[in-house]
Design a binder for these strands. Structure first.
Lengths: 160, 160
DNA sequence: TATTGTTATACTCTATAACTATA
DNA sequence: TATAGTTATAGAGTATAACAATA
């Protein structure tokens, strides 16, 4: 490999050459940072963050879901979900409802406001990805989704 | 879309069905969490973390690199690099060397220990990815790398 | 005994702003 | 004025451990 010996290194050029660029992990991180920054910029200062959006999405699609189940689906700890649900409850997007038959559980129920906010956010997020990833073809995006999901599957098999 | 009405939701089954799974951003995050956890587990308690490994990699491949340039390459702020370089210096893997001609700059120079540690870490990281991603073919990995790098490129064009 | 939601706590990663020494 | 390295600081995001209520 050729290296520049002195002066300012050219970051663009370097990208093709380093060990680092051959690692999936490094590239995942860099790509995620890019997408996440654009997500936040698109949804704005007071908009939903990616975590909160994800949680709302599952609450809308699985009304009555419990916090423990939601945490499992998101792949985070129960304790970490409290702040997220507090946020959504504070916005008036969901309520913690008691469940007849098991008084330990707080079922998460989207409000009409929450359903509306979710649809708006969903549109915004779709536009954000369409715009940011306009260089990828529909096929490439589909391939990428598939490969990323495959990575999560290998993890599950290790633990089984 | 069909939904389970009551009882325990099946997280595996749900994966195929949600809005969330259609987003690149969400899948990037989940895949990165998987890879990063395995990276740490492989390199161990006192091993290099992903950030520190990445920094060391560039220092080895671009000896005499300045901290500002390294931060640019890694896509983080100058200030965030101080702790990383402190870590590597504390392990004896690099030194901060003065540069004749510009006394502001601290050139980062790998030590012989650092070069050895990098080669070991590089092997370990390669094994970690080979094992974790053994479900992906060489072609799939290549495609994935290419698509992830393409995402970073779209970001740069936006800013230009 | 086990589970749900919660709190307390700590650690990692990152950014912003301001400082110093140099240029 | 601008840049390199640094410090102080704060804010996300996440995890672990422990607790009360309930099963």
């Amino acid at each position: 490999m050729t290296r520049k010996q002195a002066g300012r290194l050219d970051a663009e050029q370097a990208i093709a050459a380093t060990d680092l660029e051959g690692f999936i992990g490094y590239n995942l991180k860099r790509a995620y940072v890019t997408v996440q920054a654009d997500f936040r910029a698109t949804l704005g200062e007071d908009g939903l963050g990616p975590r909160v959006f994800s949680a709302l999405s599952l609450v809308v699609q699985f009304p009555q879901i419990s916090q423990s189940e939601l945490a499992r689906m998101l792949g985070i700890e129960r304790s970490g979900l409290v702040a997220i649900v507090d946020d959504l409850e504070g916005r008036g997007y969901l309520t913690r409802a008691t469940v007849p038959g098991d008084r330990r559980v707080q079922a998460l129920v989207p409000t009409p406001d929450g359903l509306g906010a979710y649809q708006s956010a969903l549109d915004a997020v779709r536009q954000h990805e369409d715009r940011l990833l306009s260089h990828l073809t529909a096929d490439e995006k589909q391939t990428l989704l598939h490969l990323l999901q495959k990575i999560r599957q290998s993890d599950r098999e290790d633990k089984a």
